[in-house]
Design a protein around this nucleic acid. Structure first.
Length: 563
RNA sequence: UGCCCCGUGGUGUAAUUGGCAACACGUCUGACUCUGGAUCAGAAAAGUUUAGGUUCGAGCCCUAACGGGGCAGCCA
């Protein structure tokens, strides 16, 4: 188990840990704590899975136990090898390690089959010839009991031979099922003689074409847990009604080890969707650029966006674990990544929407090197030199000919400091034919050089800049929330109607400090006054591409928006 | 209309297991600042869905109601 998860400082008690604590006191599982993370490989992992991963692996770490990674691959018609690979990558990236305990439900197909045979021999399961439609009719409704299948009382021998034939592929898909013999009148529909095996003549990504029948989740899951010695089988709320069935299989098959299923509420996030079905839809309809589009709430999307594993783990710690439905404000996720990057990200100046500034009293061919701090939060990160010159770029937004109240940046009559440099004063604005400002002329005060003895003069604002002939051009992608309503998945309506058309803005000619040309993937930067950025995976030497992870908190636009 | 689960500030999660509700995010002030960032100080915000009951005392226990969610795949 990865021991370097130093951010997991506080135990963060929750109802699941209380259950475990109690089990330890009563010695229910001989002082063992063994969990598992059981994804189905039918999609990429998302931030909701991260909650489950942090929960399961986190408990194992804190209780000195173990956590398995087990693929719940019992439905080959939906599952793919691409997903099993991405899932492993994502769990590792998050910082967790299953060591040698990588399992697949398909590892147990033979044993699962034998369990089914045992159930038949004990008269607790039967082969049913009802079609899917008939099965639904026989099941009854939420308020009415179901009816027994006409095939319910077949002899054990007949069941055995028919199940054997199912296994051998003698029947077409959908013609037969193996069902547990429980109670068609149970108020819990899951107990109304549930299907435990179905015919699926589909090749499996691991077992190939050796099986024509596949076990259902309810049958496979508990038994797999028991085989692996899982003590606490943690799953989401919708499986609550399945727990009696989980227990039934283990009891009827006389398992000596009986894991405890515990259910918790899945994560919901504002301004996003979390269901795999909807995420798949976004990918397939090309609404986003694949599973790892930086706007996706997938682990791979967050990674490409620039989120760190630490920040996601901290986020998962903060949201807690409980049984009630919840919707977490994305602002909490954003806070988690800002908190982390504030401490770690190298500061740099980058002008996203450049406008030229000419310092008219600065000598034409002179340049000088100015000292710039790499991270005020961490002096050990040192400093660097930035080139100052007569012609610079500043942010379009940082000059206003006719400024609103409380505007602290450059404007006629209002001085600003150029960060790490001099204080400058407006002289003139050059406009194009359409009246748009294309260049601003200023003077600088040589006495105010940053760090010099006379640099103490106070000005309200400091703006970032970059030398006009010493910079690197780059594409920058500004990401915003994918949806413009808090809860995009309203019942009945199409979640795609709430897509935010401005969730991606591409800026093509941004001017960045020169040294950014040697950026390596994985490095994170704060573009001062703007946000945190990282190199996109499609970036190249020819065409630099930076992704904005998250903007800095911005009290100015807040003031602006209030008006 | 059957069964199961859940109701604590705007959002989440706590409350030494019965002792007059805390923390985080967010919001709002103010200070500081060569990032309108960060940091610091402070404020507003729930009397715990409601009504009964037990108790000296209930967010924690009991009952009922109300509200929200889940369940009728040969999905997981």
């Amino acid at each position: 188990m990865d021991a370097d998860l130093s951010d997991s400082k506080k135990p963060a008690i929750n109802f699941i840990r209380e259950i475990i604590d109690k089990d330890l006191v009563t010695n229910k599982y001989n002082q063992k704590v063994h969990t598992r993370f059981p994804p189905e490989p039918n999609g990429y992992l998302h931030i909701g899975h991260a909650k489950s991963i942090c929960l399961n692996f986190g408990i194992a770490i804190d209780y000195n136990g173990q956590c398995n990674l087990r693929f719940d691959d019992t439905n080959p018609s939906k599952e793919e090898i691409e997903y099993v690979n991405s899932i492993q990558e994502d769990v590792h990236w998050l910082g967790f390690d299953w060591e040698d305990r990588l399992f697949y439900a398909s590892d147990y197909f033979e044993r699962l089959y034998n369990c089914a045979v045992q159930l038949i021999k004990d008269g607790k399961a039967f082969v049913c010839d009802l079609t899917a439609d008939q099965l639904r009719e026989y099941r009854g409704t939420l308020t009415e009991a179901g009816k027994n299948s006409p095939y319910r009382n077949r002899s054990i021998e007949e069941n055995l031979t028919r199940f054997e034939k199912m296994k051998n592929g003698d029947f077409p898909d959908g013609t037969h099922t193996l069902r547990a013999k429980i109670d068609m009148a149970s108020p819990n529909l899951n107990m109304r003689d549930p299907v435990i095996y179905r015919i699926l003549k589909v090749p499996h990504h691991r077992t190939g074409d050796t099986w024509y029948i596949y076990p259902m989740y309810d049958f496979a899951h508990g038994i797999s847990d028991a085989y692996e010695g899982i003590t606490h089988s943690i799953c989401t709320l919708e499986f609550e009604d399945h727990r009696p069935l989980y227990d039934w299989f283990l009891n009827e098959l006389n398992f000596k080890h009986h894991p405890q299923q515990i259910e918790f509420a899945r994560l919901n996030l504002t301004y996003t969707v979390m269901s795999k079905r909807k995420l798949l839809q976004l990918v397939e309809e090309k609404i986003v650029d694949g599973w790892d589009d930086p706007r996706m709430p997938t682990i791979s999307g967050l990674r490409r966006r620039g989120y760190s594993p630490e920040s996601i783990r901290n986020f998962c710690d903060r949201i807690g674990v409980a049984k009630r439905e919840n919707v977490i404000d994305v602002a909490l996720l954003e806070h988690s990544i800002r908190e982390d990057l504030n401490k770690k990200a190298q500061r740099v100046m980058g002008v996203l929407r450049p406008m030229k500034v000419v310092i008219i009293n600065y000598p034409e061919h002179q340049t000088e090197e100015l000292e710039a701090v790499n991270n005020p939060e961490d002096p050990s990160m040192g400093s660097r030199k930035v080139i100052f010159s007569r012609e610079l770029y500043i942010e379009k937004d940082d000059f206003k000919e006719d400024p609103p109240k409380k505007y602290f940046r450059l404007s006629p009559g209002n001085e600003v400091r150029l960060r790490y440099g001099y204080i400058i004063k407006y002289v003139d604005a050059i406009k194009d034919a359409s009246g748009e400002i294309i260049e601003v002329h200023c003077t600088y005060d040589p006495e105010t050089k940053s760090g010099s003895a006379q640099s103490q003069r106070k000005v309200k604002g400091t703006i970032h800049w970059v030398s006009a002939n010493n910079n690197i051009s780059s594409e920058v992608r500004l990401y915003d929330r994918l949806f413009n309503t808090e809860i995009p998945e309203g019942k009945g309506k199409d979640f795609r109607e709430n897509l935010n058309p401005k969730s991606l803005e591409i800026l093509s000619d941004c001017k960045l400090e020169m040294f950014l040309k040697d950026t390596k993937p994985g490095e994170t930067f704060q573009f001062e006054r703007q946000g945190y950025f990282c190199l996109d995976k499609h970036s190249s030497n020819k065409n630099l591409v930076f992704n904005r992870t998250v903007a800095l908190r911005d009290s100015w636009t807040k003031i602006e928006n209030q008006k």
